[in-house]
């Protein structure tokens, strides 16, 4: 086993492959109005990279969310609708 290849910086997508979700069909987080949101902060701080820009539209992909609440703290209920996935779905931490 070569050790060197473990010692390279992994992209976020590769890190996300380490986790397990049972993704709910219902979207539990939704951007209602991006006006006035700290968009750069959301993109950089959401640990799972759920926020991204498509042109000038803020996209939110809820599938990789770990329900940490950081984006809730950085926004308000009229801009981001935030709730928990139901039926135990969402992130399934095993070790942490």
């Amino acid at each position: 086993m070569s050790q060197q290849s473990r010692l390279k910086q992994l992209k976020l997508e590769e890190l996300l492959q380490r986790d397990v979700w049972d993704v709910d069909e219902d979207r539990h987080i939704e951007v209602l109005n991006q006006e006035g949101l700290p968009i750069k902060a959301l993109i950089i701080l959401c640990p799972m990279g759920c926020y991204s820009m498509a042109g000038d539209k803020l996209l939110m992909s809820y599938e990789g969310c770990v329900e940490c609440g950081t984006c809730r703290v950085l926004s308000s209920p009229d801009k981001i609708r935030w709730s928990y996935p139901r039926s135990g779905r969402g992130i399934q931490y095993r070790y942490t």
């Binding site: 010692l7 770990v66 940490c68």
Partner: peptide, 30 residues
């Protein structure tokens, strides 16, 4: 991105010698 800060920490020359062959088995935030 914050994940890249953690990756830099993992790969910091002083620390990485402790776990150079280790595989990442979970990643997350809270």
């Amino acid at each position: 991105h914050v994940s890249s800060l953690v990756e830099s920490f993992r790969l910091h020359p002083y620390f990485r010698v402790y776990w150079r062959e280790a595989d990442i088995i979970e990643y997350g935030g809270r």
